[in-house]
Every structure is written in C-alpha cells, then in structure tokens.
Amino acid sequence: MAETQLADVFVEMADTLIDDFDVIEFLHMLTERCVELLGVSAAGLLLTDQRDTLQVVAASSERTRLLELFQLQTDQGPCLDCFRTGQPVSVADLALTTARWPRFTAASAEVGFASVHALPMRLRSEVIGALNLFDVRPGALDEGKLRIGQALADVATIGLLQQRAIHRRDILTEQLQTALNSRVLIEQAKGILAERLQVEVGEAFAILRDGARSRNRRLSELSQAIVDGSEQFAPGPVTNLPG
C-alpha cells in the first residue's frame, strides 16, 4: 500500500512534533507576522506571570530600547490598561496622552512611535496578557486590521495551551482521565440502580444524587463504588459483580 510508505515518512514527525514545540519561538514568529500582516512598526506580547504581573515574552525586534518600551508597560501604558480592563486600547496619537502615561509617552516619543494599540489575550474568561502594536505614523487601526490583530492574539493563546499541554502533561492527563471516567461511571451507576430498583434512569440519577448527599460522598466516588461492587447502595436483589 502506498500509504505505508507515506506513513513511514511521517511517523517520525508525529513522534517528535509536539515535544518540538517551543512557545517562545512561536510567539516570536507571531509578533513578526503581526508586523508584516498589519503593517505596523513593531509588535510585542506581554503575559501575566504567577504574581499577576505583566512580562514581555516576545517582540518583533530585539532592539533594546523597544524592549524597554514594552517592559515599561508593566507599570503604565495602554498594554497594562488593556490587560486590566480586558478591552482593546487604541491610541491614534501619542502626543495627546502625556498626562495619562507620562513616562510611557516620553519613552515612545524617544523611540519615534506616534501611535500604539493593545489587544487583549483571553484564555476563556480570563485576560492573560495583551498584544501590543506600535507605529511610527499616527492613526487608528482600521476595523479589518483590528480583527486580524485580535485573531493573532487568539492564536497566541492556543500556543500557550499547547505549551501547557506539554509541560503539565502528567497532571493534565490525570485530570482528563478522572473527569471523563467519572462521567462514564456515573452513567453506569445510573444503569445499575435503574435495573436493581426497576426505575427509569432519570429517577435512578435522583436516587444516586440523594444517596451521595446523605452519605456525604462525592457522586463520582459513590458511582465508582457501585460499579465495582464495593457499595451495594440500594436494597433489592443482590448481584455478584466481579472485580
């Protein structure tokens, strides 16, 4: 079969793909693409650390003064405001914002930037950082570019999920197994009670839930015990359940 040869070529790739993922490299490339796609002068990504403080994680250029400008926004500036409010912050003309962010505005002017935009990075309902775009020309980003910018911010979030999946895989896999297993076991326990008590599965669930409450046990834990036979739970014909 032709597909076996193809498979041979790609199996190795599949084996190494996920572990090769380097989130910093990826985010760095993403900021470069922001510059190309949006026609801005510079782009940077800021993310929260464990202490809820913004940190610069990637920038389209490693120029020191630019990095300082991004870093400054961990204290003040549109990026911090965007992060705090979860809303995009767009400054079409930095010359007009001296009062709002004095140090940031001065530093931007030194580097030669005239406008700045910050788009929130959301992980579900939580704001985890912001995508920061600078331009040497004043002016707002049009609707289309804002949309592309937000899409790139969303892509960065997927990159973080991927990173997390690799680095916390043992814990996460355990959680996935536990969460899904519990759901399966609860359904099986419902079936067992429905048959033992000769009731509908909906009623069996109510009985199971009440039983868990009155015994002060978790629903999944009681279900597991019913399925493995260590807890008979309900009166009725006693069945021998192997395992």
């Binding site: 067992i192 429905a194 069945t239």
Partner: peptide, 8 residues
Amino acid sequence: QATGMVMV
C-alpha cells in the same frame, strides 16, 4: 447506562 443495566 445500558452497560450498568446489563451488569445487573
């Protein structure tokens, strides 16, 4: 659910 019922 059916699995549970068949178990019994």
